[in-house]
Simulated scan of single mutants.
Amino acid sequence: MLEKAIEKLRKEMDQEKDNAYTQVVGGYLIKFLNKNQGAAERFLAEDKTIAKSLETMKNEASKKKKNNFAMFTLEEGLGQLNIDGKDKIQVAIERLKMFEPPAGYYLAFSGGKDSECIKELAIMAGVKFDAHYNHTTVDPPELVYHIRNNHKDVAIHYPEKSMWKLIEEKLMPPNRSARYCCDVLKEGGGEGRFVVTGVRWAESARRKNTRNVVEFDKYGSQSRKAKQQREIFLMSDNDEKRKMIENCQVKGKHILNPIVDWTEDDVWKFIKLRNIDYCELYDEGFKRLGCIGCPLAGKRNMEKDFERWPIYYTNYIKAFERMLEERDHRGLKTDNWKTGEDVMKWFMNC
């Protein structure tokens, strides 16, 4: 009976090969059957299908929602906290186990507190993975030393062009609306792989609205092309749009965010529980460890960065001056930018 129930599910999955939702839910139901063989008879019922399961999940979400929001269990929502008494650590480990690919995960490692957590969780889960760190050329030196000294198994990738060269070539400083530095220096790697990241909803309002437990995405979850081609499946129509699964309808880079629902307190409790070494900059009062002088961090944090690492302030000025020379060479207007210092004033307030 078990074999017939699984055969039925596989047949529906074969008929819906291009439907990522059917594949994920079907795979989960097969795992469920293997652990709960007594349920096989129920799955053989004519009205028991993967499509019906998806519809039931949506209906149940609407019943559970409060203030137009519903949080599902792992079994009900494929990745959310469950009602079986499992804590967030157990849930994150199950997420990693559930989607483990044959080739293993590509673990995107930044050296920050969230990356420390996902790497430790991957080890605890016993899943196969290889960790990668993209050196941006504007990372805090202490962070780079921490990775080299404490994570010798992490592959460090150096970019073909530094931040300073990119500024000169792009003819403008990076800013909130032109984040070319992120595309070139931070978000590369993992093409064709299942990527694990430490993205968390608590980090920003934007991530609450755009990032999910699982993302099936060829172009990068926030790229324009991805947004044009992405089909969204909502477990509930909540205002914060906390989506469970995304499908770009194409094969490519997939993303798993196992601690997406963790708070900062959850992160630090886990780090202390597991006695994980972390970068010393956190003890100096730094809340997040990103690129030095990142405009997304805001003026106050930029000033703090440049006070801590003045050589990077100088390097930005020099890069801005070369940028102005290139703009002048191409006959482009520079408006109020006459010197590298002028550009820096704009950069700090953009």
Rank of each mutant, 00 (worst) to 15 (best):
M1A: 11
R10N: 11
M13G: 08
Q23D: 03
K35V: 10
N36K: 14
Q37L: 08
F43Q: 01
I50M: 06
M57C: 07
K58A: 10
N59V: 02
F69C: 03
A70G: 01
G77Y: 05
I93V: 15
P101G: 11
S110C: 05
G111M: 00
G112L: 00
Y145N: 12
H151P: 03
K152H: 00
Y158C: 00
S162M: 09
P174Q: 06
L185H: 09
R193C: 06
V195I: 12
E203L: 10
A205E: 14
R207C: 05
T210Q: 01
N212M: 07
N212H: 10
V214I: 13
K218D: 01
A226F: 13
D237H: 07
I245E: 03
C248M: 04
L256W: 06
P258L: 15
I259G: 02
W268G: 07
W268E: 00
K269S: 06
R274C: 03
E280G: 00
C291V: 08
I292V: 14
G298H: 14
R300L: 14
R300F: 11
Y313S: 01
F320A: 00
E325V: 08
E326W: 08
R327T: 10
R327D: 10
G331K: 09
N336E: 13
T339R: 15
G340D: 05
V343M: 01
M348G: 04
C350W: 13
